[in-house]
């Protein structure tokens, strides 16, 4: 399922997910797609055109969207609601928590434009708290795929589950890591490169950066590190962490999310709970509101690009 021959091929998680949803809607008339005045941004135009009776645009009213979705789900419909992750998880935070997760409504929240992927838009549009916010909601599932094929596969999987879940997607095309045979499993991480001593555990867009760092370190004869993709933050693949602790003594987590509350916090909690005795270094947004900037420039400033990861590995080796 790991792509070995097309690593330079770029695809949009948003387009791949929308295409998958459109495909699923052809045979499942209980699926309803919603958005809050972001049809184009969330790549939903085709769905709107093909299935107008099962597409609801509520206007700029994210709280309303969440609760209406919960009401529809209460009547047996399967909901996929789309908006920027920052608005889904902060503006409509309480609706997600109370109407979706507390009520157990079958609503899948597709948080788009996550992390700093809106670039020049700035911190009002960055979503660097979403993992932490949703992770803290009881009975929540938090998914953060690393490329387009895995994002589509998770959408396909979520259409079959009956519990609410949150999936965060990048705005911009990402290099394919997997091929279309990717099998999405909630709560399972993947070792993409085997090394020893240092394991870089990444999620979302930062998995590509971690792979680039590992490749560069190999080329220059640096330390052999392991690279792990953790597409599910909650539930976390603790079995994999335990396995990694057998021959690694340093974990470096990388995420396009604040260093508090996200993947790093989840891994740290797991290390402590299981007594793994591994040193943890968390890379992410360093508890600040990043300025608007071109995406890659921002990732570089924040130390979550390949160079930042590489530098951290060299410091900790």
């Amino acid at each position: 399922m790991q792509n070995t021959g097309k690593t330079n091929t770029m695809h949009s998680q948003l387009e791949a997910s929308a295409l998958m949803l459109e495909h699923l809607m052809e045979t499942d008339d209980s699926i309803i797609v919603m958005t809050a005045d972001l049809v184009g941004s969330c790549k939903l135009s085709k769905i709107e055109q093909r299935f107008p009776e099962r597409f609801i645009n509520v206007g700029i009213a994210e709280q309303n969207m969440m609760s209406i979705a919960a009401g529809l789900a209460h009547e047996g419909m399967k909901l996929f609601v789309h908006t920027f992750s920052v608005f889904a998880t902060l503006r409509a935070c309480e609706q997600m928590r109370t109407d979706l997760f507390y009520n157990g409504a079958n609503v899948k929240v597709v948080g788009t434009h996550c992390g700093v992927s809106t670039g020049p838009a700035g911190s009002t549009h960055f979503s660097v708290e979403d993992i932490g916010v949703v992770r803290a909601m009881p009975k929540s599932t938090v998914i953060s795929p690393s490329d387009a094929p895995s994002a589509a596969a998770f959408i396909q999987l979520l259409a079959k589950t009956t519990e609410p879940a949150f999936i965060r997607l990048d705005r911009n095309p990402l290099p394919d890591i997997y091929d279309e045979g990717y099998e999405a499993v909630i709560g399972k991480g993947h070792i993409l490169a085997h090394g020893k001593n240092i394991a870089v555990i990444a999620t979302g867009s930062t998995v590509t950066a971690a792979l680039e760092a590992q490749k560069h370190l190999n080329e220059k004869g640096g330390p052999k590190i392991s690279i792990v993709d953790m597409p599910t933050i909650k539930p976390l693949d603790k079995t994999l962490l335990k396995q990694l602790a057998d021959d690694h003594n340093v974990f470096i987590t990388v995420e396009e999310h604040n260093v508090y509350g996200g993947l790093g916090s989840a891994v740290g909690q797991a290390i402590a709970e299981m007594g793994l005795g591994v040193r943890l270094h968390c890379l992410g947004i360093p508890d600040c509101y990043p300025s608007g900037n071109p995406v890659e420039y921002n990732r570089s400033l924040l130390g979550i690009d390949s160079l930042g990861i590489e530098a951290t590995v060299m410091k900790l080796q």
Partner: peptide
């Protein structure tokens, strides 16, 4: 449906009514 936080009920009801219509 579980309620208690104010301002949630009408959109829940809208979703339920819309499902009935569908």
């Amino acid at each position: 449906m579980s309620t208690g936080s104010l301002g949630h009920g009408l959109p829940l009801a809208v979703g339920i009514a819309f499902a009935g219509q569908l």
